[in-house]
Design a protein around this nucleic acid. Structure first.
Lengths: 331, 331
DNA sequence: ATGAAAGCGCTAACAA
DNA sequence: TTGTTAGCGCTTTCAT
């Protein structure tokens, strides 16, 4: 049995007009209490539920946000999604989720879906290999606000919500320097990503400011496995580093595997610092000290910006969530 | 500028009827090639995109699935969601995500949303404290198929897709026995959950079958932290156990923290086996041997069942994804 | 306080 | 091959 109670049905049973029923159900002041009561009661017993399809058509609005993300199975996006879902629900919106799986074609299809479904807004994290952001901007032209988060385009005229990459990197570097570590091995991810470039720049700059450049070695790894291997070969020479910095969870997991393999004591034999959402650093003992880049906080901020856009704020801006250093016992 | 090209607009510009335009756009055989071409071209230049709201109203169907989950930030659900999203997208459906955050009231609201949005189907994982599943079954009455996964109700007449709890537990126990371990400490989660009860029962039964009950100690932990503490106090006596079994990722992370803290060598000083999706076991060195309960596979299976329901299969069943033992180096 | 009627954009049965 | 028409369920303006 499908939904089959409509305003029409109620109106015909009570022998009143459809519009009266509609108004009664909305507690419109024009309608008499007696009529309201009658209508409400019948609606209750017939389990009336308004047809959202019709309402959407009529109001030209669906109260649905879409979130586009390369992959759901990622500790950082996870918490971002969780925050967005929570806020959406609390504000009467539903959340649609689409993955791109790092495929540009899928990304395009997803954007088309956003247009077809005429969603109220889109939260988007562009996939690494996307260069043309115009399909995203097209949504803006259709009055569908787009809030870019995390992996944001270089293009100026758009809403971006980012982790404070520069600051997080600086925070981690300063913590290392302050502890008086002698030799830091800093491992970063894919150097084609702007996020990597920013983090490398801030990290090295901080060491330079303290005249410590000679105590820093930079390297890159494209995967956890590569991070593990680079750590293993580096530490064949025990003196090669007394501290390892990891740009991301992915790098951290690779590095930590290597350190467990070598049975090194943290932080006495080797110290570890990372930039992270926090989930992964807390898995180890001692817990890893990290500069926090909270997906959850980022989500909350992105949502706030979305609501501002919907209430007419066309002021375009790049917002940033400040990072804080969370002390584990690894440094 | 909102979407503003409609069939009506195209029809009035070309001075033909709306239905001709509609049919031309759908490549209906009745329409002449000349007309089709005209219509297609104009639609293209005006960037016509059909109004999904109207189509939904007309067809009484929105091609949207909803997924209800206690919390997105969970390694297992993560991969389940990812699988469902992927399949949905490939099959022309969109996926709406709702969290319950283990709150029964929120769960109820979410179910109402499913009804209001008249979604095509619902994938649901009930929250631990839910006892009354009738609101879920009400969806079925509205011809909205509900596929329960992971945490499923005891109620018989519904579609359930589950991990092979019994078999996974047995697999892990057998692996331990086969390796000739002398003393196993088996740590389980919340014993109020049916999933825990099943796993405990199968685990102990397997030991009994091999007349090894005296080599097994069972305990429970409600959190990773508790698992860590129990492991720490257990291993004060080094002879207390030579093997630890962890029922879940949560337990595993707590146990592993304790083992790192004690600097125990795995598997020589202590062996570890768990039941998991796989993400967490792969973070350690050596990687943890585990009985795999794949969220991804579960998702694929759930989706298949959903499509069967939509094409009229009312045959209600409980499906199970077989578990396999993935060897790490921890046993 | 209530009703009549138009219309949101689309589909499809029926007519021509 | 094309057009006419009714209708999906609801909101809302304008009348009464």
């Amino acid at each position: 049995m499908k939904h089959n109670t409509t305003l029409k049905k109620i109106s015909s049973i009570l022998d009143i007009s459809i519009s009266t029923v509609s108004r009664a159900l909305k507690d419109h002041p024009d309608i008499s209490d007696k009529t309201k009561k009658k209508v409400l009661e019948l609606a209750e017993t017939l389990e009336y539920e308004p047809n959202t399809y019709a309402i959407n058509l009529r109001t030209n609005n669906s109260k649905v946000f879409t979130l586009i993300v390369p992959n759901i199975t990622n500790f950082f996006y996870d918490s971002f999604i969780s925050a967005i879902e929570e806020e959406s629900r609390k504000n009467g919106y539903s959340l649609m989720i689409l993955q791109t799986l790092d495929d540009t074609e899928t990304e395009l299809k997803n954007l088309k879906l956003c247009r077809l479904n005429r969603v109220s807004g889109v939260f988007a994290c562009i996939s690494p290999n996307t260069t043309d952001v115009s399909p995203f901007l097209k949504l803006d032209e259709l009055d569908i606000p787009v809030i870019f988060f995390d992996k944001v385009p270089a293009y100026e005229e758009c809403n971006k919500i980012c982790v404070a990459d520069t600051q997080a990197s600086k925070l981690a570097a300063e913590a290392i320097i302050q502890k008086g570590r002698k030799k830091t091995f800093a491992l970063f991810g894919n150097n084609n990503l702007s996020i990597t470039k920013k983090r490398v720049a801030a990290f090295t700059a901080t060491f330079e400011q303290h005249n410590m450049s000679n105590k820093l070695v930079i390297d890159y790894a494209m995967s956890a496995e590569e991070a593990r291997n680079k750590t293993l070969s580096l530490l064949k020479n025990k003196k090669a580093a007394d501290t390892i910095f990891c740009m991301s969870d992915e790098i951290l997991t690779g590095v930590m595997k290597a350190l467990q393999e070598l049975h090194l004591k943290i932080p006495t034999e080797i110290a570890v610092v990372s930039i992270s959402n926090g989930d992964i650093p807390k898995l180890y003992y001692p817990e890893i000290t990290y500069a926090e880049t909270s997906g959850y906080k980022l989500g909350k901020l992105a949502f706030t910006r979305m609501m501002a856009c919907l209430s007419g704020s066309t002021f375009i801006q790049e917002l940033t969530v400040e990072s804080v250093l969370i002390e584990g016992g690894s440094l």
